[in-house]
């Protein structure tokens, strides 16, 4: 047994096994890379070599048929992953604090609003940064915010975001008694394409770029949800939030807003 040479073409086992394997590989490659692609008239390959390369998985750009349709409104051009604010240094936070002086009228001295404008203390830096960018570009329209962000540079926005993210989340101005979690927040409405609010806005999971909602003004939350639903607000990336708000009933919008407002 031990004297038998295995890796030799004269060994019937080696020759058969290797031969059959090679044969199947070659035959299936011929069918898969040449024959089947060429039989697909709709694929529109430029020739045999193009067909083989495409079947092998080489990246191919398809000739563009029609021009891309541009929106007649501004959409966000924030790339969330490349604009992630870096380390929030003490200097950045300090600069942000100075810049934030002009925001106190609406957003409060410590980032806690006394009107129905949003609380910013402890808000995610990325969420603040993105909204500032969108106000500046016109993707998010506000008569109040628009004029105030015109002069802000990217660095200013980073600093402001860092400052507000650094402020502690204090019990907000609006707290009522905490309400039980409504179904729309916890479970959503799957067949209307509404994922649970909490699957992006924290408490179940958090999706980068989405804001922290606890303790916000219910009026503000309802206004924003209605604006998303009508399309009046359209700075969410690829309609992410419009898709949700559109399916929500007025009662659900109210329930979600009141719930988040009641949370500490």
């Amino acid at each position: 047994m031990s004297s038998e040479r295995l890796f030799s073409l004269r060994n019937r086992w080696f020759a058969t096994a290797a031969g059959v394997t090679a044969l199947i590989a070659v035959a299936s490659a011929t069918v898969g890379f040449v024959w089947l692609p060429l039989l697909q008239p709709t694929a529109g390959f430029a020739g045999l070599w193009d067909a083989i390369c495409s079947a092998a998985g080489l990246v191919r750009a398809v000739p563009v048929a029609e021009p891309v349709v541009q929106a007649n409104y501004k959409t966000t051009n924030v790339n969330l992953s490349s604009k992630v604010p870096g380390n929030s240094s003490a200097i950045s936070i300090g600069r942000g604090a100075t810049l934030a002086m002009q925001c106190t009228m609406c957003h409060g001295a410590r980032g806690l609003s006394e009107a129905d404008s949003p609380n910013l203390a402890g808000q995610y830096a990325l969420a603040i940064f993105k909204q500032l960018q969108d106000y500046k570009s016109g993707a998010r329209i506000s008569a109040i915010m628009g004029p105030r962000v015109v002069t802000l540079t990217d660095q200013d926005m980073h600093d402001l975001a860092a400052y507000y993210a650094y402020l502690p989340r204090l019990p907000a101005y609006h707290p009522a008694t905490a309400r039980p979690t409504p179904r729309i927040v916890e479970s959503g409405a799957p067949m209307r394409n509404i994922a649970p609010c909490a699957s992006c806005h924290g408490s179940i999971d958090y999706k980068g770029g989405s804001p922290w909602l606890e303790g916000e003004s219910p009026v503000y939350l309802m206004t924003q949800l209605n604006a998303f639903a009508s399309g009046a607000r359209h700075n969410d990336i690829s309609q992410q939030m419009r898709n949700i708000a559109r399916g929500m009933s007025p009662a659900e919008i109210e329930a979600a807003a009141l719930y988040y407002a009641s949370q500490p």
Partner: peptide, 17 residues
């Protein structure tokens, strides 16, 4: 979407084996 159709066919054949 990231694997070519040719390799999908080859793997299909060997899966039959």
């Amino acid at each position: 979407p990231q694997v070519g159709a040719g390799f999908k066919f080859m793997h299909s054949v060997f899966t039959a084996l």
